[in-house]
Design a binder for these strands. Structure first.
Length: 926
RNA sequence: GCGAGUGUAACCAAGAGGCCAAAGGUGACCGACUCAAGAUCGGUUCUCGUAGGAGUUCGCAGGUUCGAUUCCUGCCACUCGCACCA
């Protein structure tokens, strides 16, 4: 191939950009965009590539439009994952070693250093910067930092001081999944089994048996009024314990679990379930009830003993019925306490009978329980004698009544069985103490965020609903950890600030990061940051000049204009950062907009490092070239849509870029002076410029490419087709190419930077002015004329295809002037029904009779089929079709290789000539 | 299960009441140029048709309308999130 080598171009261009994108404040307008910084624990794949390339296209676009653009990057290093990784590598875990050595291609000597977690992030942040640069991402690397830099920690301390002063940080207890073996809380990724298990909060209802408490666990404490008995499993041996000194009876499993939930537990003896059966127990809210046997009672569920409400719990009802069919306990009747629409007095009984369930071992019992509980929770009301409130309210109010007055305590339990840690032991629910929370549940704070969201520019607009839901749903967030990398909580240094909570306002840090790097962390007191970010004066501020500089720079950039992130972060990071911004920054510094991205697929399957289904970004750049990767990633789908990387599609993108480059280079050969055709090309170009600009203003990278790449390419195709044989086009093509190269520069900057030089540009295309439309260059009559010609060519082709004769001549008959008058009348008519009458008022027309009414009908159909925009143009000014076709007769002859004549249909007696209509000439092929 | 979103021809994807048999790209097929090509250029790509036309389509089933890919209802399938994890 004669075209220049892409990789060579990249090597030549990269040094020109090395310090090209390091903006300082100016007098002009700024554009500040940020993307969620990466956690550099592995190599970048093409999915990451798009996350940073799509914003780069936007950054480059605004830069060319004259804005001072800031696109910074840093590395999020906080948290526990790399610690786990380094442990696994140190242990020689084959999966981890293979992932890093084989997939991420880490050299052995570097891998050896990975026993230090910081070595991992250090290595991969270098990788990230190198690969991002090789993709042409226009980042200001001066501002790079990591979240464990001492200066950053000082910044976080300042942030948290404000959060605390704003009463957004609270201390409390919190139930977590906990592995007794590892002695640590466990997250989803630490689990072998049960990663979807949720923690449920049961109320332990304290029944009394002599001097001992028998706690029954329930999610529906309000049903206490309908308790008829307790259930114990006769096959289980329960234990007697002293819980915080009080005598209880629970299952052995429950005793262990309770010991993690804020209680001291001492096992003092055993008691077989059978010993409890037929005993009488009591509770102030339901009186004396007997203890009965039931097989369905699971000792590994909560306390292992349950209270029985046969009127409302299908399990209880059927277990009681099972006993009664054996003739036992026939004196017990269900005691209803809730009315619910759709059910009679005893809902559980009805549900069981409707389903025709035979006994308590029926597998459908689970679903029946859900059905009855669901209905009662949604629409049920307690009887008046129990307060008459809705089930929804009563559940909480009865629970707190029990807690306050009847010795109840909560017990946490998973909603699914078998939650197993990676280490193999069973996970329990543990109550962590002294845990700090960000109080996202605070209605006042929520309201501030909701208000902010309402004022923000969200792209695409569909995500607005999801943001609003998220704010609504957000509960308090446990924001401190015991293990991991990160900043210590300033007022409670035993705790580390959790990773999602130390990455919420760092966009403000970027604005001054390069200055902070030159300041000793010791000097960065909260007063210093208060001055820089909030303009608050304090006595004894150090390095006053530097601080003033930083204050000025912060005010120049802030607030950020757009934050970009993938859609999976809506429910945490993207929303958190809004909470933190409203808590700390004044109104003028609050975020302006967010753009939410779709996810990436590889050959139709989800990209996943652990499954090995990834394509590394660096490999992609090596194989296809940076511009190809860029164009594919932003051109195959809009940023918020999911995209699918397929190598064969990427290769064709590469060909498109080659084609573009060759075309631009060839266009330099045009020598003729510009003619009508060039004016047409120029006129069309104005539309492409306008639509490309509009698309990029809306972050529609794909749409922009459609216009700027394929739109212009297809015009050029028509242009060349129209050109006389042997012509290389006119001098105008150079001008067009100058515009074209600039329109594509944000997407394929390497190619365009190279071409810009070839076209004689002095400076970087990255800073060349974005093309603007020239209204004077628009010639809609010319465009209409070419449109007519193209439509006619299509018609001729379609006729030729069908009749399959070798033509010897083609005649084009343009519509006679009276038909033009009919057409205009029909097109402009508001009432299509009376238009015939209007036209017939004309003497001339009346003479033609039926011919006119036929023409009206044909015009109506034709008008219906043409775009309204063209109709408007035709109403304003019908083109001189005779002149258009005569001028193009040479072209048409060349196209179809036969003589082409142009005549007025009015002067022909040919039968087909009568079919001629304005904008749709009759065609006769012989 | 709950919340948000999506479903268009072989594939990706535009269209948001009549401009729609539905842009653009990819792939496939046919030609041209070539010793040759995965390179380039032109054409075709729902079905039927010897005159620019007709017929059947836009996840499925209903409904509103003179008219629906576009609006409403229900169903089905897929994607993301459901928390202490980046």
């Amino acid at each position: 191939m004669s075209s220049p080598d892409m990789r060579q171009i990249e090597r030549d261009i990269l040094p020109l950009w090395e310090h090209a994108f390091e903006p300082d404040p100016t007098d002009g307008e700024k554009f500040y965009l940020t993307v969620a910084y990466p956690y550099p624990s592995g190599a970048m794949h093409v999915g990451h590539g798009r996350t940073y390339i799509a914003p780069d296209v936007i950054a480059r676009f605004w830069r060319m439009r004259g804005r001072t653009v800031l696109y910074p990057m840093a590395f999020h290093v906080t948290g526990a994952p790399v610690i786990g990784i380094s442990k696994r590598i140190a242990r020689g875990d084959p999966k981890a070693v293979s992932l890093y050595r084989d997939l991420y291609k880490v050299p052995d000597d570097v891998l050896a250093q990975f026993v230090d977690p910081l070595a991992i992030v250090r290595h991969f942040s270098e990788e990230y910067q190198r690969v991002m640069s090789s993709c042409g991402i226009s980042i200001d690397w001066r501002r790079r930092f990591t979240t464990v830099d001492p200066q950053y920690s000082k910044f976080i301390e300042w942030q948290w001081k404000h959060l605390r002063e704003g009463n957004h940080v609270l201390k409390g207890a919190h139930p977590v999944r906990y592995c007794p073996q590892c002695d640590n809380p466990v997250g989803d990724h630490d689990l072998l089994e049960g990663d979807k298990a949720e923690i449920l909060k049961f109320t332990l209802v304290m029944f009394r048996w002599n001097d001992t408490f028998i706690p029954t666990a329930t999610l529906r404490p309000e049903t206490i009024y309908g308790v008829t008995n307790l259930w114990v499993n006769p096959e289980v041996t329960y234990v007697r314990i002293l819980l915080d000194g009080a005598p209880w009876i629970v299952s052995r499993e429950a005793a262990e679990k309770l010991s993690f939930q804020d209680h001291t537990v001492e096992i003092t003896g055993e008691i077989p379930g059978t010993d409890l059966i037929d005993q009488t127990v009591s509770h102030p809210l339901c009186g004396d009830v007997p203890v009965l046997p039931a097989r369905f009672v699971d000792p590994d569920m909560a306390s292992g003993i349950v209270m029985s409400v046969p009127a409302h719990a299908p399990f209880d009802y059927i277990a009681l019925r099972d006993l009664q069919t054996e003739g036992k306990y026939t004196g017990i009747e269900p005691v209803p306490l809730i009315t619910v629409p759709g059910y009679g007095t005893v809902p559980a009984k009805e549900a069981v009978e409707r389903a025709g369930v035979a006994n308590q071992d029926d597998p459908r019992m689970e679903a029946l329980t859900q059905e009855v509980y669901g209905a009662e929770f949604a629409h049920g009301r307690l009887f008046d004698r129990y307060g008459g409130s809705s089930v929804r309210e009563a559940r909480d109010s009865v629970a707190s009544l029990m807690m306050d007055q009847y010795g109840s305590v909560p017990m946490y339990e998973f909603d699914t069985r078998s939650v197993v840690c990676r280490c193999g032991s069973n996970v329990v629910v543990k109550i962590l103490h002294d845990q700090w929370f960000l109080q996202y549940s605070d209605p006042a704070w929520k309201a501030q965020v909701t208000g902010l969201i309402g004022r923000m520019d969200l792209v695409p607009p569909e995500v607005r609903a999801e943001f609003e839901r998220t704010v609504d749903w957000l509960k308090d967030w446990a924001c401190t950890r015991r293990v991991g990398l990160g900043t210590r909580l300033p007022w409670d240094p035993d705790w580390l600030i959790e990773p999602l909570s130390d990455s919420t306002v760092y966009m403000a840090y970027y604005t001054i990061a390069h200055h902070l790097a030159t300041v000793s962390a010791d000097l960065l007191t909260p007063e210093v940051f208060d001055y820089i970010y909030l303009g608050k004066e304090a006595s004894g501020l150090p390095e006053r000049e530097k601080l003033d500089l930083m204050r000025k720079e912060f005010l120049f950039w802030y607030p950020y204009d757009f934050r970009f992130s993938a859609k999976d972060l809506i429910s945490n990071h993207l929303t958190f950062q809004l909470f933190h911004h409203v808590a700390i920054f004044p109104e003028p510094c609050l975020p302006r907009g967010m753009v939410v991205f779709g996810m990436g697929l590889l050959n139709g399957a989800k990209m996943s490092s652990s499954k090995g289904n990834v394509f590394l970004l660096e490999d992609a750049v090596d194989e296809f070239g940076a511009d190809t990767v860029r164009m594919f990633l932003v051109g195959s789908a809009e940023p918020w849509q999911d995209f699918d990387w397929r190598n064969e599609l990427v290769s064709s993108t590469r060909k498109q870029i080659d084609r573009f480059m060759n075309t631009v280079l060839e266009c330099q050969a045009g020598q003729e002076s510009a003619g009508n055709l060039d004016r047409w090309l120029q006129s069309r170009l104005q539309g492409h410029i306008a639509r490309t600009t509009e698309a990029l203003e809306r972050f529609q990278t794909r749409q922009a490419l459609q216009e700027a790449f394929f739109g212009i390419e297809s015009d050029l195709k028509w242009y060349r087709r129209r050109l006389p044989a042997g012509s290389a086009g006119s001098l105008y093509l150079k001008e067009l190419c100058s515009v074209w190269v600039r329109l594509l520069a944000p997407v394929i900057p390497f190619t365009c930077e190279y071409l810009w030089k070839e076209l004689g540009g002095d400076d970087l295309v990255s800073y060349a002015p974005w093309p603007v439309t020239g209204p004077a260059a628009v010639d809609s009559r010319l465009e209409l004329a070419e449109d007519l010609l193209a439509r006619t060519v299509e018609d001729i082709e379609s006729i030729l295809k069908i009749i399959q004769i070798v033509p010897s001549a083609i005649a084009i008959y343009t519509a006679p002037s009276w038909k033009k008058r009919v057409f205009s009348a029909v097109a402009a008519a508001e009432n299509k029904n009376t238009v015939v009458r209007e036209i017939m008022k004309d003497e001339e027309m009346r003479k033609r009779g039926k011919e006119v009414t036929d023409t009206v009908r044909q015009c109506t159909t034709l008008i219906h089929r043409l775009p309204p925009q063209i109709i408007q143009q035709l109403i304003d000014d019908l083109p001189d079709e005779g002149a258009i076709f005569s001028a193009a007769a040479g072209f048409l002859s060349k196209e179809f290789s036969v003589p082409v004549s142009v005549r007025d249909a009015g002067e022909s007696s040919h039968a087909k000539a009568a079919l001629a209509l304005p904008f749709k000439p009759a065609i006769v092929i012989e």
